[in-house]
Structures are given as structure tokens and as C-alpha cells.
Amino acid sequence: MYPIPNRRSPCSIVNRHYQPCYEVAARYPGPQFYTCSYCGRFLTRTYISESGAIHCRTHVVFTDGACLNNGQANPSAGWGIATGASTSQCYVSPFDCSFGQRTNQRAELTGAYEGMIRGLRDMKKSCPHYEQLHTDNGDRMELLLVTDSEYVTKAMTEWLPKWKANDMKTSSGQTPANLDIISHFDDRVEFLKKQDVHVGFMHVLRHRNELADKLAKRAAEVDRKLMHGVSRDNAFDKVIASSPDLAVSDFTSTFERLPNSR
């Protein structure tokens, strides 16, 4: 089984950014994603214990949003997320009108927010690996949201602190776009931080986020059909994700898989 650390482990998420410990970065440059052998959830290297064992405690969720006809007449949008290596850990949804105007940025923000919610739910599911690494009640939980949207990562990590210091205005004195979603997102992240659950953001190139990208595009296509009066029966979560052309296995084939024991 995985050795339990005898002291508080280093943090991977600092100020909402992913920062692996120096030992991990030296041995394995760049972000390294894993799938858990027990539950299939996505993880990333967190730290190396005194015994030399690599611990993968930070949970990872891939997120994306898409908008067809963005900025044009009759746009349709949706989001897609993946918390693990099976189709049952993929979630999609066409855009809900309660989120306001359909745009690419709002779809990406909504996808990241929903990724946080689903990721938290999956983190709580029973898993021997999870329970082993979280036996120490002093250890905090970490959830990393991975997206190919530079807009989402910068809004939640760089721009928002500046807006707060400027009475929620941009440097030009304007109200930031999509402030309603961003503020709600920020409130939730701060609330979780008080519960010792730290949420971070990572920007990756699109080919590293291929699964969520495909899910989001499929959700946007469903949204377009719904807007034309097609039945919603086939638009529920996981139904779209079960389509074989989404190739979950192809996406995860480049991931390293954690062994069942050390």
C-alpha cells in the first residue's frame, strides 16, 4: 500500500496556481498526469516522501466549453468535463439559459465551474488510494482544474485580484465581462479554501485537453438541436459521453497509471 506521510506534505496549489515540489519538478519536468488504478480518477504528482515514493494526491479535472456561431445569430453552447478515465466519469450539458447569453467565454467559465463541482463530488467517493493519502486530518485537499482556455485561467488567477483592488473595475474603469459568473466562481473557491479544499487552475494546449474539448463541442451541438425543438432525451449527462468516437481510452493512453502498491 501507499506509505502515509508522517508530516504535512508540500502543497501543489499556491495562489490558485499548480506548483509541484522542487524534487518532482527536477525529476519529472512539466505537468505529469496519472490515472488511479483503483478508481480511474485523474491525479498529478504532488510530492516525494522521505522514502522516495511519489505521491499523487492532487485530483485533476479536465474542463472545456464551446459555442457554435459565437458572436453571431443563433449561437449554441455547452460544456464538457472529465474527472477520470472512464465514460462514467465524463459529463456534458448543453448551455442553460439561466447562465445568460451564449458565448464561448461564458461556456468555458461554466465548464470550469461545473468541473469543480463534479470534481469535488468524485473526490468524496470511496477509494483505497484516496483514503490512504488523506489519513492525516491535517492534510488539505487539492483540486486542479485543467483547461485550454487562457481566458479562464487568467481571469481566476491574475485579473480578479486586480479587479478587486480597483472596486471590481478594469484598469480602464470598465466592468469586466462575465463578472457575474466569475464572482460566483470566486466566492465558491474562497468558501472551499476555508474548508481546507484548495482549487487551482492550469492552462494547457488544446491537444492536452482533447477529451473535454470534444465533449464540449458535442454538448453545443445538442444545444443547437434543442433550440430547434429536438427532444432532450439524448442530451442527459453521460449519454453523449458514451459515444465511441469520443475515444476516452485514446486520450488516457498517454497517462501513466499508478501501481496498486508500492
Rank of each mutant, 00 (worst) to 15 (best):
R118E: 13
H17V: 04
S183D: 12
R188F: 15
K238L: 12
N70I: 07
R206E: 12
M116Q: 07
L120Q: 01
N166L: 14
S49H: 03
T35Q: 06
A220H: 05
P31Q: 04
F191K: 11
A82N: 01
P259A: 13
G71L: 03
V92R: 00
D136F: 00
P244M: 08
P5R: 01
D136Q: 05
T153V: 15
N260V: 09
R262A: 11
T147N: 10
I181E: 06
H17C: 08
E142C: 05
T87Q: 11
L43D: 00
D186C: 07
K214V: 03
A25H: 04
A107C: 08
T110F: 03
E256P: 01
K125Q: 13
R262Q: 09
F33C: 09
V239P: 00
Q89G: 07
E108I: 10
M202Q: 12
V199C: 08
K164V: 11
L144Q: 03
G71H: 01
R45H: 03
P75S: 06
R118Q: 15
V60F: 08
C127Q: 04
A216M: 10
S12Y: 00
P75Y: 05
Q195A: 12
E221V: 12
A155V: 11
S261M: 12
N178I: 13
Y151H: 12
A112Y: 03
T87N: 09
T87E: 09
Y151F: 15
A219Q: 04
R121G: 03
E158L: 14
R218M: 13
G138W: 00
S261A: 14
Y113R: 09
Q174G: 02
H207R: 09
T103L: 12
N74L: 10
V199R: 00
W79H: 07
H129I: 10
K194N: 13
